[in-house]
Design a protein around this nucleic acid. Sequence first.
DNA 1: TCGCAAAGTTAGCATCTCTTACATATGTTA
DNA 2: TAACATATGTAAGAGATGCTAACTTTGCGA
Lengths: 215, 215
Amino acid sequence: MGQEQKIASAPTTATDDKPLKKSGYHHGDLRAGLIEATRRLVEEKGPDGFSVSDACRLAGVSTAAPYKHFKDKTEMLVAMVLEGMQRHRAKMLASLEGLPEGSPDRVTALGREYVTFALEENGIFRLKFGGFSDRLDDPRLQAAGEETFGIVLREVAACIGESDVTPEVRRRGFMLWSFVHGLSFLLLDKKLSDMSGGVELDNLLSDIARRVLQD
Amino acid sequence: MGQEQKIASAPTTATDDKPLKKSGYHHGDLRAGLIEATRRLVEEKGPDGFSVSDACRLAGVSTAAPYKHFKDKTEMLVAMVLEGMQRHRAKMLASLEGLPEGSPDRVTALGREYVTFALEENGIFRLKFGGFSDRLDDPRLQAAGEETFGIVLREVAACIGESDVTPEVRRRGFMLWSFVHGLSFLLLDKKLSDMSGGVELDNLLSDIARRVLQD
DNA sequence: TCGCAAAGTTAGCATCTCTTACATATGTTA
DNA sequence: TAACATATGTAAGAGATGCTAACTTTGCGA
């Protein structure tokens, strides 16, 4: 008790132009602070362990403060997931840099980034995919998801020699997505005991990519 | 409102030896009734939408009644998941009947059964795998899961010509599990719009089985 | 400098939750 | 039939939650 520290901002850039935390009454960027608090809490306690009150406590504000920035508890969660997906997308794109066009390594890299994100930011992952789609059915979330999947499809098309996103490309892409998606969940639930380090993971990913992309 | 019907028993056999629903004061088998109510509620409202009170309302008893049968809310959920996994296991075994030993069709059949169960009984599926493993860490659940996975491993071994569950068998089995697991989640979240009917699903499953089991 | 809008706070309502202590109904067995 | 164990109901406690209304502080722009 009482060991919690206030959250000022997302853990991203050190060179922010906006001051995110001021001294007293005004928080600076409470919206970002609450999103970050939400992220941490969902990560620790699971999607249903999250409460607005907890987020306020963690962010160091009163329980009424969030309602100046979010309409709802749900909107807090949506905002948090949305922000996470943008980070995810950026990371996936970054992981492609330096790898030759049309190489299966690019698909493997995307897969690794997917699994890594799911493990590191499992709060976001579980909220988005853990069966809360009824309550979090914001169209922005769906759009963001499709955009991310588009990245994969482009790489798959290049690998199997299609210039367009044909039904076959979709099919293969969906296979790969299913695989990394399931792998993420199983790793999260610690169903794989002997996968130590990232080496085995890389093997598995490239092996699957090869099998799905071939002939 | 008021259209709900009391739950008497699990929707399984019609020839039960124990009477599951009697007339007035005594429910007959309230334990089973509550498990069934729990199942329905988690299915409808999601894992976190479940409350003991709701289950009582649905089962037609007072809110104190469950505590004669379960220690806890958690124990209700565990019991419900456990019972579901036993049904799941039985169905998987039944799906193998009539298929020749060592045939990849057996693996495909298991996969289809997995996905079907996840879709039909998604409450159980989501509770077991949706990230609630911290709160539902009962050893019986883990044991049941490993036993089910054992069924798959046996078939995989037969398919790739191993007589034992070697590391390679585990590896392939894990690939297949990841795939059907992820596929289940994606289908649940309606991420695949164009997979109409079960035909495409069968194609996908046998295709994946072939790719993972070959060479 | 002054006033106003934005951002926070305090207080509280209404509701729902899980759980228990105790009373009551029922089925069973001697 | 009488007594006892089991199964249920009643009532209530102790909290937490989401959200709103009304008040206060702060920063910024005219």
